[in-house]
Simulated assay, not measured.
Amino acid sequence: MNLEKLPLPDCAERDWARRAITILEGDGRRSADTHLLAPVFEGLEGISIYLKDESTHPTGSLKHRLARSLVLYGICNGHIRQGTTLVEASSGSTAVSEAYFARLLRLPFIAVMPRSTSRQKIGEIERFGGRCHFVDSPGEVYAAAERVATETGGHYLDQFTFAERATDWRGNNNIAESIFEQMQAEENPVPEWVVMSAGTGGTSATLGRYIRYRNLPTQLCVADVECSAFYDCYRTGDRDTTCAEPSRIEGIGRPRVEPSFVPSVIDHMIRVPDAASIAAMRVLSDRIFRRVGGSTGTNFFATLSIAARMMAAGQEGSIVTLVCDSGARYTDTYYDDGWLNARGLDIAPWIEPIETFLARGDASVLWP
Rank of each mutant, 00 (worst) to 15 (best):
A38M: 07
S178Y: 03
R329T: 08
G123P: 05
R254Y: 13
V262L: 12
Y100I: 05
G129N: 11
I21Q: 06
V190S: 11
A89D: 07
P114I: 06
D325G: 12
E126R: 12
I47Y: 00
A328P: 06
T241L: 11
A143Q: 13
V194M: 03
A163C: 10
H133Y: 09
G253N: 11
R29W: 06
R119G: 08
A89Q: 04
F230D: 00
I278L: 04
E13P: 13
L72M: 11
S247T: 09
E88D: 10
S93L: 09
T59Y: 02
T296I: 15
I347E: 00
L304H: 05
S116R: 14
F101W: 05
H35A: 14
I179W: 02
L36T: 05
Q184K: 15
S61N: 11
T161M: 05
M113P: 10
I23V: 15
R212Y: 04
L36V: 06
R209V: 05
S295A: 15
I288C: 11
D337M: 14
F357A: 08
L107G: 06
R282D: 05
S90C: 10
R103L: 07
L37Q: 09
S197C: 11
L358M: 14
E126Q: 11
A342K: 13
M269I: 01
S228M: 08
Q184C: 10
